[in-house]
Simulated assay, not measured.
Amino acid sequence: MTLIYGHRGAKGEAPENTLASFQKCLEHGVTRCELDLHLSRDGELMVIHDPTLKRTTGRRGKVVEHDAEVLHAYDARQGGPGWPQPTPIPRLADLFEHCPFEHWQLEVKSASRVRAARMVMAIKGLAEHYGLQDKITVTSSSREVLRALMRRAPELSRGLVAEYAWLDPLKVARQYGCNLLALNWTLCTPERLHKAQQQGLHVSVWTVNEPALMRRLADFGVDSIITDFPGLAVETLGKP
C-alpha cells in the first residue's frame, strides 16, 4: 500500500505550512506530512518554505532577520487558496503540540556549516522534548545538512531530497546513511525505484497531484507520495 504525505500540510486546500493546512490534512485521515523549516533570529524553528517572507506574507526581509514572536504574528495566507481567517507562521513546536501525525518529513534547505549545525541541534532538542525521535525523518538536498545530521543527531532518520538527475541520488543517499529518498516524480523510473528499495530506502515521490499519476506511481510500487491534495489522494488510492 502506497502511503500518503500531505505536502506542506494540504497546500492545495489551505495556506501552506500553517496550522490550518496541517489540520486539513489530518481531517482527510492523512497522518503523515512534509514541511519546511527555517530558523528565526532567536533560534526557533519556524515552518515556512522560503528563506524570505514576501511570497506567503507579503512582508519584506528574511525569516532569519526576525524573532519567532514577530514571525508568528505574520499572516501567511498570501498566494495560496482563499482562506477566511489569518493563518500565522507556526513554530514547529506548535505543530508538535497540536497535530498528532504518525510521521513527519522535516525538510531543511541548504545552509552553511554553522547554520546546518544549529538547525540540526534545534530539531534534535524538540524531537527529544516531545518524544518524537522515531516519528521524524529530517530531509535535505544539502550535503552540509546531511553531514551535520550524521555528526550531531545520528539517532534521527535522514532523507535525501533529489530534484535533478545530475547526481546519482542512490550513491549520495548511501554516502550519508539515508533511510529515505524524497524523489522528484519525474526521476522515478521503475529501475531507479527498484534499486533504491533494494538499497533499503523508503522512496517518497513529490509533488503528485493528478489522480492518474498517483495511480501510476502506486502501481510502480513507490512507498509513499507527497501531494498538495491529500483528500484527493485518499479518494484515488484509498486510506493507507
Rank of each mutant, 00 (worst) to 15 (best):
L95N: 01
S142V: 07
L180C: 09
L232V: 15
L193P: 06
E163R: 09
L3Q: 03
P51S: 10
S157L: 12
V208M: 06
H202K: 07
P154E: 10
P15H: 12
V70F: 04
V234H: 12
R151E: 15
R77C: 06
G131P: 00
A162D: 04
M46S: 04
L181W: 08
R152A: 01
N179A: 14
V161E: 12
T57D: 01
L132F: 07
H38C: 02
C178W: 03
R115L: 04
G200C: 02
R41W: 10
V30S: 03
A116M: 07
R55T: 00
Q199E: 14
K171E: 15
H129S: 13
H194Y: 09
L35H: 09
Y5N: 07
T56E: 13
V222Y: 07
G221P: 00
G12P: 06
H98G: 01
G221H: 10
Q133E: 14
G80A: 12
M119H: 07
S141E: 02
L126Y: 10
H66P: 00
A117W: 12
H129Y: 14
C33P: 03
S112Y: 02
R32E: 01
L53G: 10
D168W: 09
V205A: 02
A162F: 12
T87P: 04
E13W: 01
L92F: 02
C188I: 13
M150W: 03
D75A: 08
V64N: 03
I225G: 06
W166F: 12
L156T: 13
E97Y: 06
V172F: 01
D50K: 02
L167A: 08
H38T: 01
V108K: 01
R143E: 11
C99S: 09
V63W: 14
L181E: 04
C178H: 04
T236K: 11
I4F: 03
S141A: 11
T137D: 05
H72P: 05
E107C: 06
R216I: 05
T189P: 14
A212T: 12
P211W: 14
R118Q: 15
C33K: 00
Y5M: 04
A196C: 03
V234R: 15
P190E: 06
L181P: 10
L95H: 06
L132W: 04
V63T: 02
P86T: 06
G238Q: 14
L39W: 14
D36E: 13
C99Y: 11
P88M: 05
G238E: 14
W166Y: 13
H38I: 10
G79N: 07
